[in-house]
Design a protein around this nucleic acid. Structure first.
Lengths: 343, 343
DNA sequence: TTGAAAGCGCTAACAG
DNA sequence: CTGTTAGCGCTTTCAA
């Protein structure tokens, strides 16, 4: 693999000069020498070693993404959004699976530090632990978080409370009064926010909050399935369910059908996220859309701003949008203007 | 950020000694000094700079993953499998979205080279182009590919031909004689293999290959939806469809329902992959399961073997397994032993 | 407009 | 058992 000295020797110049031309320095270089160097660069297929460069520059053009699990389509979309802008900005991305656990988070952050990542984007999992918080703070100017508002980092998120409230209002408007809620995993602020939105909307409409109708899930279809089963078992059962994400809503619908309930007639279900498959389900899932890729993209834009020292919004909240499909109403297009439903 | 000289000074030893203790060298170090150094390391929270280390060692413990699109659950699972073993082996992973296009692939490979990635795992997209091939060859000992057999790299894949044949035989056994096929994107060897398996099984059962029943998709639900629509429009239509992946099968089922066909009575559909959601669909999707995460894991194991110079299998083919669910037969559990269907 | 040389933080001969 | 020193490949003063 050719290195800068090879180029310098072959072009009869110093490595300094080579460095200047490949970095397009403001420093003047004679056009003739520049051409000569460039042609040798091409001939030798020379690429500067990023390690050496980074070592000196203290800048690697690499950022880390900390997420619990790339298998979860939500995070996959987030990552996609991040990558789209990272690519354009010249950054590469290293992925760290944290499993949402403090231990994994800490390990990942240390690793990223060792590798001199320029910054990190943090999404999901628990930040509350003292150790995590202090480590994170130590790198304060280089972190942006997704989906949390309680920490003092630049943050981007969806209006989770508002979205959940939209869902509940929609159901109430449909005549439902017993509305269940299936949450995400413990300690997730996203899930808590959605729960809060749910409670607020109930309260605002004079409906009681019934703890019996709330279940803790863990974001995956199976937990939605299991929780819905328990929700539907008793004689006192909800006529509608708000699920903290689409995956669990899919599970809930399956459980309902198996229990002999038809959706939406016997049970209405609203999801959250609008994951790519949700319009393909049967019935197509009514869901609170959040612009997942945009959120990822926004977080990366923030990080780029932060790293380049330019100014940037420190906080960005994306509005949600209720997508009414058939898991809550038959023929929703008749009742709602809803151009996004692919039919 | 503390560096090795800081530790050395504070512990009153040379940096060499520090290096020896943090790397747990075979080189003898007096237990007392070792302790002293270690305590300073903790005190200063010292972590060796991986760039400097990598620069010297020509080894970064970083590998690259080249995939077309992380939004695709198939690739997300592959990545998860890779990460699981990478974590254990001490490697970090940098993700490169190639969009399946040659241009993106080449750009990514060069980037990985600049950053001194120790190796790369390549999955999806097109390798056939001359330039890609030659670049890839240049790094021959450090590449493993997933899902292709036509290139001279270590490779892991599923038995795609066999799996497609299983699907077709299953349908034939059910009495279907007009069986359609929806393929993946052009130039994909995986898709071609599945098509070949489909043709072989038809031939072996004395059924004609009817080009009218074959459609080119592009792996996503929408293309499955669109292609199925065209397949079902004519008066001469298939009674069953094999889709080259689950995503397209989901689309196909939606199309069938919209066209007034019930699944599986009017149209049987078989997918490929057994993506996590496929058992949650309605009807639950009959599909050719391939152990996606295992394939990812195996590829990383291969790469680790390759990088560590130990011997390893240069080729690993995972068998597929037909999971019979209700998109082809009502009450499949009565007719087939199929413990994997969650009910 | 060009180059010599110091140094980024670490490892590994080599010499005590 | 411990330390000196020469790089790894690059950027960047500083001097010419």
């Amino acid at each position: 693999m050719a290195k800068i000295t090879d180029v310098a020797r072959k072009a009869n110049v110093s490595i300094t000069t080579v460095s200047r031309v490949i970095n397009n320095n403001s420093h003047k270089v004679h056009p003739a020498t520049r051409e000569r160097v460039l042609s040798v660069v091409r001939e030798l297929d020379f690429r500067p070693n990023a390690l050496a460069k980074g070592l000196h520059m203290k800048k690697t053009l690499t950022i880390g993404i900390l997420i619990p699990d790339i298998s979860n389509p939500y995070y996959a979309e987030i990552v996609r959004g991040i990558q789209n802008v990272a690519d354009k900005a010249g950054y590469s991305v290293t992925l760290q699976n944290t499993d949402g656990k403090q231990e994994g988070i800490i390990r990942s952050i240390y690793l990223l530090r060792e590798k001199s990542a320029d910054g990190v984007i943090f999404s999901g999992g628990i930040i509350t632990g003292y150790e995590t918080l202090s480590i994170l703070r130590e790198l304060k100017e280089r972190v942006v978080v997704i989906g949390r508002h309680e920490v003092d980092f630049p943050a981007v998120m969806a209006d989770n409370m508002g979205g959940a409230a939209q869902a509940v209002r929609h159901l109430i408007g449909l005549g439902h009064r017993e509305i269940g809620f299936i949450g995400g995993s413990d300690g997730s602020t996203t899930s808590l926010d959605r729960l809060t939105g749910y409670r607020n909307a109930l309260a605002q409409n004079g409906l009681p909050f019934n703890e019996k109708f709330v279940r803790p899930g863990s974001w995956n279809p199976k937990s939605g399935y299991l929780m819905a089963k328990t929700l539907l078992k008793g004689k006192e059962r909800p006529t509608a369910i708000v699920s903290a994400n689409d995956q669990m809503a899919f599970g809930a619908i399956k459980a309902a059908k198996e229990a002999g309930f038809s959706v939406p007639e016997d049970l209405a279900v609203v999801g959250f996220d609008n994951v790519p498959l949700s319009s393909y389900f049967d019935p197509p899932l009514t869901t609170v859309e959040i612009p997942i890729q945009d959120i990822g993209a926004a977080s990366m834009k923030m990080l780029v701003g932060l790293l380049s020292g330019s100014k940037f919004e420190k906080r960005k909240v994306f509005p949600t949008k209720l997508l009414v499909r058939e898991s809550t109403v038959r023929n929703p297009q008749i009742r709602f203007d809803n151009p996004k439903v692919p039919r």
